[in-house]
């Protein structure tokens, strides 16, 4: 697969269901109550439960490997969270190739939801020398 600076990845739409938030929190062994208990989330100033950072991180990684294929190897994933992902929202991930050096690409990823920018991230990924057949 030839990758050039400026390449845009097709957007990935993710429905933020209550199930995704809770399943992601438990699969990442994160039992903070704000990720599964709406009443506790409200007591801590949030209108509802919200997605944990490990799930967001995992979804950003998935977005990259979905696009570049199973032979792509993640080297670095850095994310910063903004507007939280609450149930009932939709997050749209978009990506743009910022740098290419030999077999390694740096992709800038953003994820926007209904209330703003949920995540900005940078992923460094090593791509197979020859594209998948």
């Amino acid at each position: 697969m030839s990758v050039r600076v400026g390449d845009e990845l097709p957007p990935l739409e993710i429905e933020i269901t209550r199930t995704l938030i809770v399943a992601g929190a438990i699969a990442s062994r994160d039992y903070q109550d704000v990720h599964h208990d709406p009443e506790s989330a409200r007591q801590k100033g949030s209108p509802d439960i919200f997605m944990n950072i490990l799930t967001t991180n995992g979804l950003v990684g998935r977005y990259i490997t979905d696009h570049f294929g199973p032979t792509a190897a993640l080297r670095k994933v850095a994310v910063r969270l903004g507007a939280p992902n609450h149930p009932g929202d939709t997050m749209v991930l978009t990506g743009r190739v910022e740098a290419v050096d030999a077999d390694t690409a740096v992709v800038r990823v953003t994820g926007d939801n209904g209330i703003g920018r949920h995540v900005t991230g940078t992923v460094t990924v090593t791509l197979p020398a020859r594209g998948p057949a």
């Binding site: 992601g24 998935r62 490997t65």
Partner: peptide, 27 residues
Amino acid sequence: HWCEALGDTNPAYTGPDAIAPPTMLQA
């Protein structure tokens, strides 16, 4: 369980030569 929760169907994470999704590091 991680792949199910996140909807990640990457075949690199299944089978005899499976690796863990790198983003599971903290988990």
